Amino acid sequence: MIRSNSFIIALVVTFSCAALHAAPFVPARDPNVVAIAPSGNVVATGCSGMSDGSFPPRPHPDVRKCAVVAIWDVATGKRLARMETFGDFTQLAFSPDGTLLAAARLFATADGVPMNEVRIWDATTGRVVKVLDRCHAFCFAPAGNRLAVVSRSKCVVYDKTDWSKEHLIPPLGGCVSVSFLNDGSALLGVVRETKAEQPDQYFIRKCDLETGKQLQQSQPLANAFYRLALAPDNASLATGHDGGNVLVWDLATLAPQLRLQTSIKGWAHPFFSPDGKYLAGGCQDNGDVVLWDLNTTKEAGRFSFDKWNARTFYTRTAEETFRPEKDPQRFVFHPDSSAYLVGGSGGVLRLIDGGRELKRFGD
């Protein structure tokens, strides 16, 4: 009996010690970035995550903590590919022909060494095609033949067929994000300017793609914004801001025309429907999505989510230019404009008409 009690006590102590040293509970993560292939048959999700703490860093050995990009079949919900990495995702996008998937992630080591990258995979196999180190933003050209990437000092356009560097776009070097015009003739960048004893200023800069020369620049705003959404008709663009604000700009003059309000605190992420019917504002704080009719600018729909775990892993100061926790690409319309994909509840594809869920993605 004494031996039996001793055994039980030892067992309790063993389990108590194990519990003390075990990894803490890690809740299910929602994607920080989402994308839909041009066919509409495949989607991708990206969950930010941690490194293993070594140098050079590797994905965290716990699959619940490392960063993961996954590709999913829409019809079946089956996962087709899974790629592990580390850091905070800011962008995820398929190439216009659907053959490639690219992601931008930010990461810095414990002693502050930046290791940002843009990574491109084969969208059918998950095989790495290209890694562009020290880059934090990208955009595929509409024709699919080029890729623009941005580092802290440069903006470079690559030929996607052989990854030869085509040329630099000097006025957009170090910009926060970059976007091709829908006709592929020019690049737009969100530029942050910091001067001593002055508040930060953010503005839009347009550059000719072939010559690299600056064509236009918008008026500066003290209100921060991090990316652009271009309307399908190439007539306007939208930017998202804190306090639920969405600004609509005239693309020809780069002048703000209209302010829309989600009435939800937090950062508003703008995205246009491909058919040009709607402009949507996704709330980065809780996942709510507000639709506005582009013809009338009146609110046309509002959708809410009951579960939302939108977190990043590496806190950045307000002085840093690149803040992925503010406005990652967590919302995107389906190519046929009938639904949208949002990074809530593991990734949800939801119909515009009636708001019914079509599919949830996640393990």
Rank of each mutant, 00 (worst) to 15 (best):
Ala28Arg: 11
Phe303Asp: 02
Asp52Lys: 05
Gln261Asp: 13
Ser151Gln: 01
Tyr226Ile: 09
His241Glu: 15
Met115Thr: 09
Leu221Val: 11
Asn5Leu: 14
Lys277Trp: 02
Ile9His: 07
Asn32Trp: 05
Pro171Glu: 08
Pro199Phe: 02
Arg127Thr: 08
Ser51Ala: 03
Phe15Trp: 12
Met1Gly: 09
Ile352His: 14
Ser16Lys: 01
Val69Pro: 03
Asn5Trp: 11
Asn234Gly: 12
Arg58Val: 10
Ala196Phe: 07
Gly301Asp: 00
Thr211Ile: 15
Ala229Thr: 12
Ser338Pro: 06
Phe55Gln: 07
Leu20Arg: 05
Phe203Val: 09
Ala137Arg: 03
Cys175His: 04
Gly354Asp: 04
Glu166Val: 14
Ala75Thr: 12
Ile352Asn: 07
Asp183Leu: 08
Ile264Gly: 13
Val26Phe: 09
Asp275Thr: 04
Val12Arg: 09
Trp121Thr: 01
Gly126Trp: 04
Pro170Ser: 06
Gly347Trp: 01
Leu351Asn: 10
Pro56Thr: 07
Val289Met: 04
Asn5Val: 15
Ala229Lys: 15
Cys139Trp: 08
Gln257Phe: 00
Leu279Cys: 06
Ala255Met: 09
Arg302Asp: 02
Trp72Gln: 10
Ala10Arg: 08
Thr211Met: 12
Thr99Ala: 15
Arg356Gly: 00
Ala231Gln: 12
Ile120Ala: 05
Cys207Gln: 07
Gly343Thr: 06
Val176Lys: 01
Leu209Lys: 10
Lys265Cys: 00
Leu341Gln: 10
Phe140Cys: 04
Leu260Trp: 03
